[in-house]
Design a protein around this nucleic acid. Structure first.
Lengths: 338, 338
DNA sequence: CTGAAAGCGCTAACAT
DNA sequence: ATGTTAGCGCTTTCAG
């Protein structure tokens, strides 16, 4: 591989001048510029990224922490970030924590050891006070998940409001005993639960802890939950889930035991993943602005890097959601008769 | 950030010695080792990866070229690679070509410009002769997609055999007019088509070009294809698809117009993605050994890097598949009566 | 067993 | 406008 020195010699100039044309510095005559360009061409020269990084003390790389990329929500989120990153000549280092605290901590080290210029957190496993110290070492941005008592900028959807609206929809269909499932114990999950409770309270409906399920993540969890629910003496007639996967599992299990959806049992999902349209009846769900969230988070990150963690204090961007009504909460006949 | 010089001073030793303990070199007394370790501890020292890379002339990074990460097949494939990479202290640079030739070419440059130590190709857009030259610049490995006339190691599933078996299954259910869909015009697609044709030929069934569809990728394509098929004067009664997504779209469209699956129309998918179990009737499909493929490919890559592209000549690893029979090809009643 | 010193490829003062 | 030079932080001969 040709180096900048080779180019300099061939062009009959100094390395500095070559470097200048490489970086579009003003003070270079057109003549020399041409000379340099020709030499580069002839030698098939490309600057060594590693050397540039060492010299410039930056990596042009952003770490994205996600639980797993095989969850479509995170796949689409990262894809959106990737679009913006690519446009800005930034590389993405995708870090899958796989829900493991230690892995998360290891990835956070990337920021401390300057292996990345910034880090976007889409979800986290450790207690916040374990993560907080790393905010000292470089720009960090929240996308999706968040934490309030800190200066890290936040880009997210209003989970509280979304859950409130979703639950109201269930209530308006006539349901009075409503269960609720959630994944981990994040702020996000707390918000969803709060929105859920607000709706119940507003309509004077009962809140029962035995109808609340946490640590519910995937299709199989959904199937399991449905059986648990229907075995209750006072069984709920509807469930607000925090996930299309879970909702889908519930529908499948309900159908398997002959329970009619939505007439005897209604389900609402979360995310509007592709699967929501495939399951039958199609899932009523809350569509997250994934693309916008990912793009915005990356833009905020780029801004943070440029402004050296300034001004971003207490920045919180709330993005809008959509309640997508399909067939798992409202029977087609009913919908038509309205 | 503390540097190696800081550690050296604090330990009262030279940078060389510090470097030696950092890299577990033999010739260092336990005494000095301890001294160095203490100094590192005290200074919270971590080696600067970029400097190491510049000095060692390697990046410990592997580029993975995929079309898009939002396709579950590639998401799971990359996840498998990530597992092995992480264990070997390798970083993955995930490159989404988004089916764009120029993007693919840009990513291939990573190898030429030594920004990565190796590159795994899971699929490609350009003509092979456009890509071939890059094999000069560093180790390359095929995973999934492949090309024969070259020295690049191949890790893949036998698409020809899989398609043959899948098509035979359809024929054994009594179908005689069978359509076939495929995505791009890759070797993979050619293999599938060849396996499909072999099955037809073996049973003396007709092959009709008007029953062959290419450039068929997603759910909506599937829906479209079904309508096209059923509008034919001599309509096929079954379809072999190259994708669970497409197969799912076909099922949805078939149900929408009241066509009974599998009794009036049978469908077989490919991949065994999560969606295959969700759609109703559940999809008969060909399960790919995704995890093994990804892991093996990464192992081959690590081997190639270690052995400096030696011995790997004409390496081709063929992994086994499974025909997963569900309800889209065989009615439950039939299955029970057998 | 340890240290001095050169240099990986690049950029940015500083000098001219 | 261009060149000289001193590093960025690390590893590795080469001496001792």
């Amino acid at each position: 591989m040709a180096t900048i020195a080779d180019v300099a010699i061939r062009a009959g100039l100094s390395r500095a001048t070559v470097s200048r044309v490489l970086n579009n510095h003003p003070n270079v005559t057109e003549d020399k510029k041409r000379l340099v360009r020709e030499a580069m061409e002839a030698l098939n020269y490309v600057p060594n990224t590693t050397a540039q990084r060492l010299r410039n003390q930056k990596t042009d790389t952003i770490a994205i922490l996600v639980p797993v990329m095989t969850n479509p929500f995170f796949a689409y989120l990262v894809e959106a970030m990737d679009t913006v990153a690519t446009q800005n000549n930034l590389q993405l280092l995708i870090c899958q924590t796989r829900y493991i605290k230690q892995k998360e901590l290891d990835f956070l080290e990337l920021l401390r050891t300057k292996q990345v210029d910034g880090l976007i957190l889409t979800s986290y496993e450790n207690e916040w006070n374990m993560i907080e110290p790393f905010t000292e070492y470089g720009p960090m941005v929240f996308c999706n998940e968040y934490e309030r008592n800190t200066r890290v900028p936040i880009v997210r959807m209003d989970q509280f409001e979304a859950s409130y609206i979703g639950t109201c929809h269930l209530i308006e269909q006539g349901h009075e005993r409503i269960a609720c499932t959630s994944g981990d114990k994040s702020n996000l999950a707390k918000d969803r639960q709060a929105g859920f409770r607000k709706a119940l309270a507003e309509y004077g409906l009962p809140f029962r802890t035995e109808w609340m399920f946490s640590n519910v993540f995937d299709l199989d969890d959904g199937k399991r939950i449905l059986r648990t629910i229907l075995n209750m003496k006072e069984a709920p007639t509807a469930v607000f889930t925090g996930s299309d996967q879970v909702a889908t599992g519930i529908i499948m299990a309900a159908k398997a035991i002959g329970k009619k959806v939505p007439d005897e049992f209604a389900i609402i999902g979360f995310d509007d993943q592709p699967i929501a349209r495939v399951v039958e009846p199609a899932l009523t769900t809350i569509r997250q602005p994934i693309e916008e969230m990912g793009k915005t988070a990356m833009e905020v990150m780029i801004e943070s890097i440029a402004h050296k963690k300034a001004e971003a204090n207490h920045l919180e961007i709330l993005l809008p959601f959509d309640l997508v009504i399909r067939d798992s909460t409202m029977s087609k006949l009913k919908a038509i008769s309205k």
